[in-house]
Computed example of a mutant assay.
Amino acid sequence: MKDPRHLAWIRTLPSVISGTHGCVAAHINFADRRYGKPERGKSKKADDRFVLPITPWEHTDGPDAQHRTGKEKAWWAARGIDATTLANDLWRVSGDTEAAMAILRETWRQRSRLRRPMQGGAC
């Protein structure tokens, strides 16, 4: 499904990874049965429902960018992001920046909890 308004709106949001503005709408290309999302074929563009805002550096330009790894699902997981769920959540509030920011703040909060070092000398 093509939705140029959704893509334009996604580009106004800060990056789901760094919180930086100046984002592209990065399509999620891996399959996810939870959302009926098929694997993207070589000649088929991914559905505009499954996009997330990330910077060009995070998307294609940086040495560890989304499109440089070849293992996109693992790339998102390594960043503590359930990409298809987050994209679906943003799709549900498309155009409502206040609701999107609440979703992103919760994502960042959860990610920061995952990245904190363990307390108390854990083994």
Rank of each mutant, 00 (worst) to 15 (best):
R115S: 06
D64H: 11
L114S: 03
T97Q: 14
K45Y: 07
F30L: 02
R115M: 05
T12C: 14
Y35N: 10
N88Q: 06
E58H: 13
D48K: 11
I81C: 05
D47K: 06
K44E: 13
T12K: 15
D3K: 12
D64F: 09
D47V: 04
L86F: 02
T60P: 04
R68Q: 15
L52T: 00
D96T: 02
G22S: 15
T85G: 05
E58P: 11
T107A: 08
H6Q: 09
L7S: 13
C23G: 13
A87M: 01
A31C: 08
D32N: 12
M118R: 13
R79E: 05
S112P: 03
R109H: 08
F50C: 03
E72P: 01
Y35G: 10
D61T: 14
V16S: 05
V93W: 04
W57R: 14
R33D: 09
T84Y: 00
T20W: 15
G120W: 11
R79W: 01
G62I: 10
P38G: 13
S94C: 07
G19W: 09
W76V: 00
P38Y: 09
T85A: 09
L114C: 03
C123N: 05
I10P: 07
G36H: 12
M118L: 13
G70W: 03
K71V: 05
A8P: 12
A25P: 04
G41C: 04
M101H: 09
M1A: 15
E98P: 03
N88K: 02
T107L: 11
G70E: 09
P38F: 14
D32W: 03
R113G: 04
A25E: 04
I54E: 08
H6K: 08
A46Q: 11
R68K: 09
S94Q: 06
G41T: 09
P63D: 15
A83G: 01
R92F: 02
I81F: 00
A87F: 00
D64P: 03
D61A: 15
A77I: 01
A99C: 01
I81W: 01
A122Q: 14
